[in-house]
Design a protein around this nucleic acid. Structure first.
Lengths: 165, 165
DNA sequence: AGTATTGTTAGGTATTATTCTTATATAGGA
DNA sequence: TCCTATATAAGAATAATACCTAACAATACT
């Protein structure tokens, strides 16, 4: 579902303010890129954003789109779907369980919690489709990354440092 | 946390049975690949699995690892972290909200549900790190993919068909 | 206003993750 | 043991994302 006009306006204002506050330049390309993500409920990928932005700004480069999207993500103005970027990660536990995800190093811990088994499915979700499974995901800094910074965006593929257990 | 010896055994048996039941050949490489994923609580990526399997089976190819992991995923014997597959997708909604994810076409719908705001953080999770946000993710088939099959694994980058709203 | 300074971009190239192609090997049944 | 449909290895191909550099643009300094 698309966000309302007012909502988009609110998001845009928040964005502009955040850039100003952090002393980051409010360039035309950044505004356009942000708007394309903020005005849709579609969760587009980088290439989709690129193609849409290009209609309004034919000279935009794909790299600028990537750079800007990650910057916005780091600033907390947008987010990404799923725990991280880059490679797919596999989970050998086939029974229902949930995850704690460290937003800094990418560590993922499994847990099972009975209370979450029967989580109610809101009517709104029922209308979207047929729910088969429920996952709860807690995000934050894991005990190893805490109290260290956590600048946002997980370090490149988590180099050198294997996700600690 | 690593699964117990018994748990690994149980997973392996389930795996062998599932392959036999579906008439899929139980090759040495499949066994080794499955074990590497089943015996760790680490959620490794394909390349990590590849490197580990190679120690026991130096001639294994990366492609076999990928092929096998996706096959296991399709059979429900393992799963992937996040909405998965390929490109990162961005979410322009910065306020707390949750998702419904279609496991067939990749559609992602946002929703907000007050009840989920105060979800209790189990003690086990508290020990993993400092929780900042909570996301509930319902997975299943969306109304457009339902009642059609849903063979599992989302279709290749969702070609042609844009995630419907 | 004119110029130095520093942040930002386009475009091209590099890198990394994942998949495809094809010749060869092998599991599992006859 | 032999046969044949599946699987596999290896390498090439493709897709997604990041890096590099020269050109630009915005602010700061004079």
């Amino acid at each position: 579902m698309e966000p309302s006009k007012e909502e988009v306006k609110a998001r845009t204002d928040r964005f502009a303010q955040a850039l100003r506050d952090s002393g980051t330049r409010l360039t035309h390309q950044r505004v356009v890129i942000f708007q394309e993500v903020a005005k849709t409920g579609e969760h587009p990928d980088a290439d989709t954003v690129f193609r849409r932005v290009r209609k309004r700004m034919p000279s935009i480069s794909l790299d600028t789109v990537y750079r800007t999207l990650w910057m916005l993500n780091d600033m907390g103005l947008i987010s990404t779907l799923g725990p991280q970027r880059g490679r797919v990660r596999f989970d050998g536990n086939a029974s229902p369980h949930h995850h704690f995800v460290c937003t800094d190093c990418g560590f993922v811990g499994d847990f099972y919690y009975e209370e979450f088994d029967g989580l109610e499915v809101p009517a709104e979700v029922d209308r979207m489709g047929d729910v088969a499974t429920t996952h709860v995901q807690f995000r934050g800094l894991c005990s190893r990354c805490w109290p260290r910074d956590g600048k946002g965006r997980m370090s490149q593929g988590n180099e050198g440092r294997k996700p600690h257990e």
